[in-house]
Protein backbone atom coordinates (compact mmCIF):
# COMPACT_ATOMS: atom_id res chain seq x y z
CA UNK A 1 0.00 0.00 0.00
CA UNK A 2 1.49 3.34 -0.96
CA UNK A 3 1.80 6.06 1.65
CA UNK A 4 -0.36 8.38 -0.43
CA UNK A 5 -3.13 5.79 -0.50
CA UNK A 6 -3.26 5.56 3.25
CA UNK A 7 -6.35 6.95 4.89
CA UNK A 8 -5.46 9.74 7.27
CA UNK A 9 -7.19 12.15 9.56
CA UNK A 10 -7.15 14.94 6.98
CA UNK A 11 -9.21 12.96 4.50
CA UNK A 12 -12.61 11.36 4.84
CA UNK A 13 -12.18 7.60 5.08
CA UNK A 14 -14.64 7.19 2.26
CA UNK A 15 -15.92 9.84 -0.09
CA UNK A 16 -18.79 8.83 -2.32
CA UNK A 17 -19.32 10.98 -5.41
CA UNK A 18 -22.45 10.73 -7.53
CA UNK A 19 -22.83 6.95 -7.37
CA UNK A 20 -25.62 5.41 -9.43
CA UNK A 21 -26.48 1.77 -9.92
CA UNK A 22 -29.25 0.12 -11.94
CA UNK A 23 -30.33 -3.49 -12.26
CA UNK A 24 -32.11 -5.29 -15.05
CA UNK A 25 -35.78 -5.69 -14.14
CA UNK A 26 -36.75 -9.31 -13.38
CA UNK A 27 -39.27 -9.30 -16.25
CA UNK A 28 -36.51 -8.21 -18.64
CA UNK A 29 -38.21 -4.95 -19.55
CA UNK A 30 -35.91 -2.05 -18.77
CA UNK A 31 -33.79 -1.32 -15.72
CA UNK A 32 -34.54 -0.50 -12.10
CA UNK A 33 -32.53 2.24 -10.40
CA UNK A 34 -31.19 0.96 -7.07
CA UNK A 35 -29.01 4.00 -6.31
CA UNK A 36 -29.40 7.45 -7.87
CA UNK A 37 -26.64 10.01 -7.70
CA UNK A 38 -25.57 9.34 -4.13
CA UNK A 39 -22.86 11.49 -2.54
CA UNK A 40 -21.61 11.60 1.05
CA UNK A 41 -18.47 11.32 3.17
CA UNK A 42 -17.51 9.13 6.08
CA UNK A 43 -15.10 10.59 8.65
CA UNK A 44 -12.34 8.58 10.34
CA UNK A 45 -13.68 6.53 13.29
CA UNK A 46 -17.22 7.53 12.44
CA UNK A 47 -20.06 5.03 12.74
CA UNK A 48 -22.51 5.76 9.96
CA UNK A 49 -25.88 4.07 10.01
CA UNK A 50 -27.68 3.32 6.74
CA UNK A 51 -31.44 2.97 7.13
CA UNK A 52 -34.43 2.75 4.82
CA UNK A 53 -37.26 0.49 3.80
CA UNK A 54 -36.64 -2.86 2.10
CA UNK A 55 -35.66 -2.15 -1.48
CA UNK A 56 -34.42 1.36 -0.69
CA UNK A 57 -30.92 0.40 -1.86
CA UNK A 58 -29.17 -0.21 1.48
CA UNK A 59 -27.58 -3.52 0.58
CA UNK A 60 -26.68 -2.29 -2.91
CA UNK A 61 -24.98 0.74 -1.37
CA UNK A 62 -23.04 -1.46 1.03
CA UNK A 63 -21.98 -3.78 -1.80
CA UNK A 64 -20.85 -0.84 -3.92
CA UNK A 65 -18.96 0.72 -0.99
CA UNK A 66 -17.29 -2.58 -0.11
CA UNK A 67 -16.25 -2.85 -3.79
CA UNK A 68 -18.06 -6.11 -4.27
CA UNK A 69 -20.11 -4.56 -7.04
CA UNK A 70 -19.05 -1.74 -9.38
CA UNK A 71 -21.40 1.25 -9.70
CA UNK A 72 -22.69 2.23 -13.15
CA UNK A 73 -21.34 5.73 -12.69
CA UNK A 74 -19.70 7.86 -10.03
CA UNK A 75 -16.49 7.61 -8.03
CA UNK A 76 -15.36 6.36 -4.65
CA UNK A 77 -12.38 7.74 -2.78
CA UNK A 78 -10.83 5.58 -0.09
CA UNK A 79 -8.47 7.95 1.67
CA UNK A 80 -6.65 9.41 -1.31
CA UNK A 81 -7.14 6.38 -3.53
CA UNK A 82 -9.72 7.13 -6.17
CA UNK A 83 -11.76 4.27 -7.60
CA UNK A 84 -13.74 4.59 -10.80
CA UNK A 85 -14.32 2.43 -13.86
CA UNK A 86 -10.73 2.93 -15.05
CA UNK A 87 -9.09 1.73 -11.82
CA UNK A 88 -7.02 -1.45 -12.32
CA UNK A 89 -8.24 -4.58 -10.53
CA UNK A 90 -5.07 -4.81 -8.44
CA UNK A 91 -5.71 -1.35 -6.94
CA UNK A 92 -9.33 -2.27 -6.24
CA UNK A 93 -8.18 -5.42 -4.48
CA UNK A 94 -5.64 -3.49 -2.40
CA UNK A 95 -8.38 -1.15 -1.24
CA UNK A 96 -10.76 -4.07 -0.60
CA UNK A 97 -8.12 -5.54 1.66
CA UNK A 98 -8.24 -2.40 3.81
CA UNK A 99 -11.92 -3.12 4.52
CA UNK A 100 -13.89 -6.00 6.03
CA UNK A 101 -17.54 -7.00 5.92
CA UNK A 102 -19.70 -8.72 8.53
CA UNK A 103 -22.84 -10.28 7.07
CA UNK A 104 -26.20 -11.00 8.59
CA UNK A 105 -25.79 -14.71 7.91
CA UNK A 106 -22.25 -14.97 9.45
CA UNK A 107 -20.80 -16.50 6.24
CA UNK A 108 -18.48 -18.89 8.05
CA UNK A 109 -16.87 -21.80 6.26
CA UNK A 110 -18.22 -24.99 7.73
CA UNK A 111 -15.35 -27.29 6.80
CA UNK A 112 -12.85 -25.12 8.66
CA UNK A 113 -12.42 -24.85 12.41
CA UNK A 114 -13.23 -21.58 14.15
CA UNK A 115 -9.51 -20.74 14.30
CA UNK A 116 -9.05 -21.51 10.59
CA UNK A 117 -12.05 -19.34 9.75
CA UNK A 118 -10.58 -16.39 11.61
CA UNK A 119 -7.11 -16.95 10.12
CA UNK A 120 -8.44 -17.35 6.57
CA UNK A 121 -8.16 -13.69 5.46
CA UNK A 122 -4.49 -13.78 6.48
CA UNK A 123 -3.97 -17.05 4.65
CA UNK A 124 -5.44 -15.43 1.52
CA UNK A 125 -2.82 -12.69 1.98
CA UNK A 126 -0.07 -15.33 2.23
CA UNK A 127 0.75 -14.56 5.87
CA UNK A 128 2.91 -17.32 7.40
CA UNK A 129 1.05 -19.96 9.40
CA UNK A 130 2.55 -19.19 12.81
CA UNK A 131 1.78 -15.50 12.49
CA UNK A 132 -1.75 -15.94 11.23
CA UNK A 133 -2.58 -18.50 13.90
CA UNK A 134 -1.23 -16.20 16.60
CA UNK A 135 -3.23 -13.23 15.37
CA UNK A 136 -6.38 -15.32 14.93
CA UNK A 137 -6.07 -16.56 18.54
CA UNK A 138 -5.67 -12.98 19.72
CA UNK A 139 -8.85 -11.95 17.92
CA UNK A 140 -10.76 -14.95 19.26
CA UNK A 141 -9.71 -13.97 22.78
CA UNK A 142 -10.86 -10.41 22.05
CA UNK A 143 -14.35 -11.57 21.01
CA UNK A 144 -14.52 -13.92 24.00
CA UNK A 145 -14.22 -17.21 22.13
CA UNK A 146 -10.64 -18.16 22.94
CA UNK A 147 -11.76 -21.58 24.11
CA UNK A 148 -13.62 -22.33 20.87
CA UNK A 149 -10.61 -22.23 18.53
CA UNK A 150 -10.71 -25.89 17.54
CA UNK A 151 -14.44 -26.50 17.21
CA UNK A 152 -16.30 -26.39 13.91
CA UNK A 153 -18.87 -23.66 13.17
CA UNK A 154 -21.80 -26.12 13.00
CA UNK A 155 -21.62 -26.38 16.80
CA UNK A 156 -21.80 -22.62 17.41
CA UNK A 157 -24.87 -20.63 18.45
CA UNK A 158 -25.88 -17.66 16.29
CA UNK A 159 -24.24 -15.20 18.65
CA UNK A 160 -21.02 -17.21 18.77
CA UNK A 161 -20.98 -17.53 14.99
CA UNK A 162 -21.32 -13.76 14.62
CA UNK A 163 -18.47 -13.25 17.12
CA UNK A 164 -16.30 -15.50 14.97
CA UNK A 165 -17.32 -13.50 11.89
CA UNK A 166 -16.38 -10.27 13.69
CA UNK A 167 -13.02 -11.76 14.75
CA UNK A 168 -12.41 -12.73 11.11
CA UNK A 169 -13.30 -9.21 9.98
CA UNK A 170 -10.91 -7.65 12.50
CA UNK A 171 -7.95 -9.95 11.99
CA UNK A 172 -6.72 -7.93 9.00
CA UNK A 173 -6.87 -4.66 10.97
CA UNK A 174 -9.23 -2.97 8.50
CA UNK A 175 -9.69 0.78 8.16
CA UNK A 176 -13.39 0.40 7.40
CA UNK A 177 -15.77 -2.22 8.73
CA UNK A 178 -19.00 -2.82 6.80
CA UNK A 179 -21.80 -4.36 8.82
CA UNK A 180 -24.76 -5.70 6.88
CA UNK A 181 -27.53 -6.16 9.43
CA UNK A 182 -25.18 -7.95 11.81
CA UNK A 183 -27.82 -8.62 14.44
CA UNK A 184 -30.90 -9.30 12.31
CA UNK A 185 -30.54 -13.07 12.60
CA UNK A 186 -30.16 -12.95 16.38
CA UNK A 187 -32.52 -12.71 19.35
CA UNK A 188 -32.73 -9.46 21.31
CA UNK A 189 -30.37 -10.44 24.10
CA UNK A 190 -27.71 -11.86 21.78
CA UNK A 191 -28.08 -8.79 19.56
CA UNK A 192 -27.29 -6.63 22.57
CA UNK A 193 -24.15 -8.67 23.29
CA UNK A 194 -22.99 -8.32 19.68
CA UNK A 195 -23.61 -4.56 19.76
CA UNK A 196 -21.62 -4.31 22.99
CA UNK A 197 -18.82 -6.19 21.29
CA UNK A 198 -18.95 -3.76 18.36
CA UNK A 199 -18.76 -0.86 20.83
CA UNK A 200 -15.68 -2.50 22.31
CA UNK A 201 -14.21 -2.79 18.79
CA UNK A 202 -14.94 0.88 18.24
CA UNK A 203 -13.13 1.80 21.43
CA UNK A 204 -10.07 -0.28 20.72
CA UNK A 205 -9.56 -0.10 16.96
CA UNK A 206 -9.41 3.14 15.00
CA UNK A 207 -11.78 2.18 12.22
CA UNK A 208 -14.85 3.67 10.59
CA UNK A 209 -17.99 1.52 10.56
CA UNK A 210 -20.84 1.58 8.11
CA UNK A 211 -23.82 -0.20 9.55
CA UNK A 212 -26.94 -1.21 7.64
CA UNK A 213 -29.73 -1.88 10.11
CA UNK A 214 -33.48 -2.41 10.24
CA UNK A 215 -33.89 -1.79 13.93
CA UNK A 216 -33.66 1.85 14.96
CA UNK A 217 -32.61 0.99 18.51
CA UNK A 218 -29.51 -0.62 16.97
CA UNK A 219 -28.86 2.57 14.99
CA UNK A 220 -29.44 4.74 18.05
CA UNK A 221 -27.06 2.69 20.13
CA UNK A 222 -24.27 2.45 17.58
CA UNK A 223 -24.26 5.33 15.15
CA UNK A 224 -22.94 8.89 15.10
CA UNK A 225 -24.77 9.86 11.92
CA UNK A 226 -27.52 8.25 9.88
CA UNK A 227 -28.08 8.13 6.15
CA UNK A 228 -31.71 7.58 5.22
CA UNK A 229 -32.08 5.97 1.81
CA UNK A 230 -35.40 6.19 0.04
CA UNK A 231 -35.96 4.92 -3.47
CA UNK A 232 -32.22 4.89 -4.11
CA UNK A 233 -31.65 8.51 -3.11
CA UNK A 234 -30.41 10.13 0.10
CA UNK A 235 -33.50 11.43 1.81
CA UNK A 236 -31.70 12.66 4.86
CA UNK A 237 -28.21 12.53 6.33
CA UNK A 238 -27.20 13.82 9.70
CA UNK A 239 -26.41 13.12 13.34
CA UNK A 240 -28.97 11.42 15.53
CA UNK A 241 -30.78 14.03 17.57
CA UNK A 242 -33.30 11.99 19.41
CA UNK A 243 -32.41 9.05 21.58
CA UNK A 244 -35.98 7.97 22.27
CA UNK A 245 -38.67 7.11 19.79
CA UNK A 246 -42.06 8.83 19.81
CA UNK A 247 -43.01 9.15 16.19
CA UNK A 248 -44.89 6.45 14.34
CA UNK A 249 -42.23 6.45 11.62
CA UNK A 250 -39.23 4.99 13.42
CA UNK A 251 -36.74 6.41 10.88
CA UNK A 252 -38.03 9.99 11.04
CA UNK A 253 -38.04 9.72 14.81
CA UNK A 254 -34.24 9.54 14.78
CA UNK A 255 -34.08 13.26 14.03
CA UNK A 256 -36.89 14.48 16.24
CA UNK A 257 -35.73 17.15 18.59
CA UNK A 258 -37.27 16.59 22.02
CA UNK A 259 -39.30 19.82 21.76
CA UNK A 260 -40.95 18.59 18.53
CA UNK A 261 -42.77 15.89 20.41
Amino acid sequence: MSETGKMSKEYPVIEVENISKTFRAPDGGGRIAALRDISFKVAPREVLGVVGKSGAGKTTLLRVLSLQMPPDSGRLNFGTTRIDEGTPGSVVRDVMRRTSTVFQGFSLLYNRSVLENVALPLKLRNVARAERTGRAREMLDFVGLGTHADVYPITLSGGEAQRVAIARALVTDPEVLFLDEPTSALDARTSGEILDLLKKVQGRYPMAMILVAHHMDVVRYMCDRVLHLDGGTVRRLGPIRNTAQFRVDPIEALWDAPQDV
Binding site: S66, Q68, R93, M96, R97, T101, F103, S107, L109, L124
Partner: peptide, 13 residues
Protein backbone atom coordinates in the same frame (compact mmCIF):
# COMPACT_ATOMS: atom_id res chain seq x y z
CA UNK B 1 -24.09 -19.26 -3.12
CA UNK B 2 -23.16 -17.02 -0.20
CA UNK B 3 -19.79 -18.74 -0.20
CA UNK B 4 -18.86 -16.82 -3.35
CA UNK B 5 -19.93 -13.54 -1.75
CA UNK B 6 -17.79 -14.38 1.27
CA UNK B 7 -14.82 -15.27 -0.92
CA UNK B 8 -15.24 -12.03 -2.85
CA UNK B 9 -15.56 -9.92 0.28
CA UNK B 10 -12.34 -11.48 1.60
CA UNK B 11 -10.83 -10.44 -1.76
CA UNK B 12 -9.78 -13.96 -2.68
CA UNK B 13 -8.15 -14.41 -6.07
Amino acid sequence: PQLFQTAHSLSAS
